[in-house]
Write a protein that binds this DNA or RNA. Sequence first.
DNA 1: CTGGCGCTTCGAGCGCACTCGAAGTCAAGC
DNA 2: GCTTGACTTCGAGTGCGCTCGAAGCGCCAG
Lengths: 131, 131
Amino acid sequence: MTVIAPPQGLTIAEASERTGLTTHTLRYYERDGLMLRGVGRTSSGHRVYTERDLTWVRMLTRLRATGMPIREVKAYAALCRSGDGNETERLALLQNHRARVLAQLAEVTEHLGAIDNKIGIYQSALERADA
Amino acid sequence: MTVIAPPQGLTIAEASERTGLTTHTLRYYERDGLMLRGVGRTSSGHRVYTERDLTWVRMLTRLRATGMPIREVKAYAALCRSGDGNETERLALLQNHRARVLAQLAEVTEHLGAIDNKIGIYQSALERADA
DNA sequence: CTGGCGCTTCGAGCGCACTCGAAGTCAAGC
DNA sequence: GCTTGACTTCGAGTGCGCTCGAAGCGCCAG
């Protein structure tokens, strides 16, 4: 009935539970080359997620949640995968992303200010109507 | 050659220039019911944008830029269109949106902090390598 | 009066990021 | 040994927000 969690590893269902991603999405990410290395398998072919895998998935989730496109996450994964010696490139990629996120935050904050004004206008109009 | 800007109005090309949206997008927004009221036409059927139209488009752009889905912008437009008396609903819609944007900003900021840590790690690793 | 541009409508197509369904396999419980 | 159910792969489908192309019309310059 229950699929055995293989020694030292988690099933895809457990990985899903811990990362908040669906099993479909976890498989999709692996398929698409976003994982650091292919996820391990049991003898019967079932995926085995290690803590390292989950740590990477969480990093990946942060990059995605801040708006990094899949293709760029893939590029970052490729850099990490190819081992030592390209830390400068990885740093550049992350700094680049950071700059874009900051710009985006500033833009959204500015637009939000204007929306807040609008909210204020409706509020005082309604207060005046009450009085 | 140049299309006459009709008296008291702007051509779609001028509206495009002033809003930063493409003419395709401006037409799409109108088609999709995002405009407050249908944009006016010349006798030959060309669109005529007024300052009021542009003001609305700018509001619309702010809503979109802060992540409001098209269908919700449409709902907001519908409320505004149906005249006075539903200010409470409009306010609720905007406040709802505001809350989501704030949550989103907080989330992105948190993820960005973690990414910053990663950047810091790469930086100190590279500094140590230099030394 | 003709060439060409910028507009018109309509509908199809695209990129992104999933999301889902079908068909099959495998280990465990009864 | 048969059922069950979580897993496997593969490929197709979805939703969003544009984005683009085709075909046609009207106005003005030459």
